[in-house]
Design a protein around this nucleic acid. Structure first.
Lengths: 362, 362
DNA sequence: ATGAAAGCGCTAACAC
DNA sequence: GTGTTAGCGCTTTCAT
């Protein structure tokens, strides 16, 4: 059976059916008209030959590949793999395939990936951009009119592009509010943000303007923290802002140092997945009784959070929905629809579990 | 700046440079020869116009898209997302892009995905096939000469296709041997396999023949268990084979029922990721002291296994390497190289942690 | 060294 | 209703 490659073309089908190329094309693409006879002959010939339309040729004619590109830092990361899942599902149900790229947060790889996707003529691209100064590859394709949507984060020079992300400030605010509601007033926040408390406080006091919109997710989350405190008439304390790099180990060290210090807090919220793992390790290594000595709310619904005891309360981002929204936004743009909104900020939700006691405490 | 779509073509470049289409083509593809002058003029024109080669057109001519397809049950599953990561990395460094599809273990979706990938003329396809009777879509593309490699599992009717997977039998044997070495003789095995102990024992007693090769991963793992027992002159006990569906909840129920029964065991090994989570939950819910009351070895190096106390020993499959091997095998086949081996069975490794006591026990 | 022209598989006017 | 033809962007003989 092993026949050599080269599947039948529309010409082969036409010959086999004894009709012209265009007659065959019309039947196969169900466009134009054809007599029942022709239709039958063509369909049978196609069946017999195992005809399979060549989408490359179609794309050359139509200018549409029905393929979307998605550029992510690391698809092995649970957050992005869930986003990708949502993205591919939404794409598929709209008749699009998905070309994926990893960047490992390397600007070089990012731009070459984007360039390649553009050469393959994808109809649109979703990008969780590397946080860098000069994302010229992104700017270029956007300039050329290829639909682009930003995922999870925005870059200052790319303010014009639509964004799909979680509402980072609200996410953290939810966690902090929940802690305040259960009686906590000394709430530590583990963050990747590097801005000073003054700087962040100034932005938190203002509206959600451009200044705010251009902050990284980590900084926006701190803003949510500060606003929740302010709403409850609590004041922020520099010593409760624990700074860590995006790394489990660094987060663990940071939290351990905090626990070993004489700064007191009754609750801790960590603002991303890696920080949450690191913080949890620190709590374990220092034998902290959770929630009695310290209440804890993590970030992202990682599977271990319900495997450990006590189970860990978390802020859960709608990961698959983020991906799906990015895909549908892109597809809308491809179809020439005016976007319903420039940005899509999806709300995260708080999953309350045992690492926060429900009882109000002193 | 927002100019309308349609990037410059080679004709535009030729005109801008004042040379013929073919001259421009030769320079841009660095094939054939061209005078230094022509070269310079063309390159400058291309630069000025922001020329970007159209890979669709190239593919139409060459018959090669430099795109690989990969069809997986669920890319949000950590095992497959790691495999995908390895796959895309290897593909990219060989100059290939990757088109992904999820099947959700639905045969319909699988075949339509494969069909679509074939229509897009991918150069090769890696598939972790849905376990079903009649994978005709796979058989068809393989018959047509499109390079195909199977990932993680093989289907009876697809014995001719190359396979890249972990050495499942060896993986479980490693775990069981380690338990035996620390003094255990009553070792329970949590498995998805549904075959009877007799049937499996018969296969375990034989060589790694076709019969063995066509078993599902879960059954191959049981074979490894049986062989490790035999090697240590221990006999298998039906009661120690705990059967569960592929689901955390079912695994938890199964293990709880076992713990509540009067069957005794001093060690437990769970043979895939979901079963491991479920088993761990059961151990927690029944307050089993690990490793003192029961030693435990899980499957797949999930991140929670080092977050819980005691940390959980696991069998770790080389996930990214599986993906990378699939990609390189495929690319080799595309380039017409005879495969180094029909199958690639990669060894898993045992990560010894605290859920097994190092001391030999009675 | 360079240009003209054919063709990859398909679609869409346009005639008949 | 059906066939002829041009052309999407590129590569590649083949002359010149």
């Amino acid at each position: 059976m092993t026949q050599r490659h080269a599947s039948a073309t529309i010409i082969d089908v036409a010959r086999e059916a004894g009709v012209s190329k265009s007659a065959a094309a019309r039947v196969l693409a169900r466009s134009g008209s054809a007599s029942p006879q022709t239709k039958r002959k063509v369909l049978e010939a196609a069946e017999r030959l195992g005809y399979r339309p060549n989408q490359l040729a179609k794309a050359m004619k139509s200018g549409l590949t029905h393929t979307l590109g998605v550029v992510l830092p690391d698809i092995a990361n649970p957050f992005f793999s869930a986003v990708l899942r949502g993205f591919t599902d939404a794409a598929r149900s709209a008749g699009f395939e998905v070309l994926v790229s990893n960047t490992d947060n390397d600007p070089e790889i990012e731009s070459s990936s984007i360039e390649l996707l553009a050469e393959k003529r994808v109809d649109g691209i979703a990008i969780a951009p590397v946080l860098q100064e000069d994302p010229r590859a992104i700017a270029r394709i956007a300039d050329e009119g290829i639909p682009v949507v930003l995922l999870d984060r925005r870059l200052p020079s790319l303010a014009a592009l639509p964004l799909v992300s979680a509402d980072h400030a609200d996410a953290t605010a939810q966690a902090v509010r929940a802690l305040i509601d259960t009686g906590h007033t000394r709430i530590a926040l583990l963050t990747e943000a590097t801005q000073s408390l003054e700087e962040l406080s100034a932005i938190a006091a203002g509206p959600d303007d451009e200044h705010f919109a251009l902050l990284r997710p980590s900084a926006q989350r701190v803003i949510g923290y500060l606003r929740a405190l302010t709403d409850a008439e609590l004041s922020a304390d520099e010593h409760l802002l624990l700074r860590s790099a995006y790394s489990v180990d660094d987060a663990q060290r940071t939290v351990e140092a905090f626990l070993d210090s004489n700064v007191t807090a009754t609750a801790l919220h960590s603002t991303d997945a890696a920080l949450t793992s690191g913080a949890y390790r620190a709590l374990t290594s220092r034998d902290i009784a959770v929630p009695d000595d310290l209440a804890f709310i993590g970030f992202d619904d990682q599977d271990w959070t319900t495997l450990v005891r006590p189970t860990v309360s978390v802020i859960d981002q709608p990961r698959q929905r983020l991906g799906a929204t990015a895909a549908t936004t892109l597809i809308g743009a491809i179809r020439g629809q005016a976007p319903a909104a420039h940005d899509h900020l999806l709300k995260a939700s708080l999953l309350m579990r045992d690492s926060v006691s429900s009882a109000t405490q002193a």
